[in-house]
Amino acid sequence: MRDIYEHSAGEDLIIKTSVRLLVPFIQLFGLYVIVHGHYSPGGGFQGGVILGAAFILLALAYDMKTSQEYMTIRVNALFTNLGAAIFIGVGAVSAIFGGLFLDYAALNKLIPLGPIEWHSFGIFLVEVGVGFTVMSIMVLLYWNLSSSGTLDEGL
């Protein structure tokens, strides 16, 4: 059973090469979707899923070890916590500087950009946080579900 799959699609040269060429562009597109969410369809959730899909594609075409070389489990946990911390931190900082929780206009006392520009920039910060969390959770879900929890070799 095992040796049939040794030489199946996962080890194919065409798939490996095309995935290696595609992954940087997918990641660039994911960052574009996050950053350009103010002016076109997009935002943290969508861009985060695209960024996570790049790593999942890497894990599918090569194996799980290769995808864990590019994003280790430790970095994955770091991104998960960093994203949630950015979101809640922006809200807490705006509460500390005299506004309500998540009222970005209060951050104007920190860096004077103007209260309305701070609304725009605060949305951007929050979207980046959401993007980090969604990306790392998608990769984490794939790793755990495809290897049934061992995180060493999966599909």
Partner: peptide
């Protein structure tokens, strides 16, 4: 748009 300077209303409502 006046209140947040974000043309994408979905993003404005979602984030703000």
């Amino acid at each position: 748009v006046e209140e947040t300077h974000v043309p994408n209303i979905v993003t404005a409502v979602l984030g703000d």
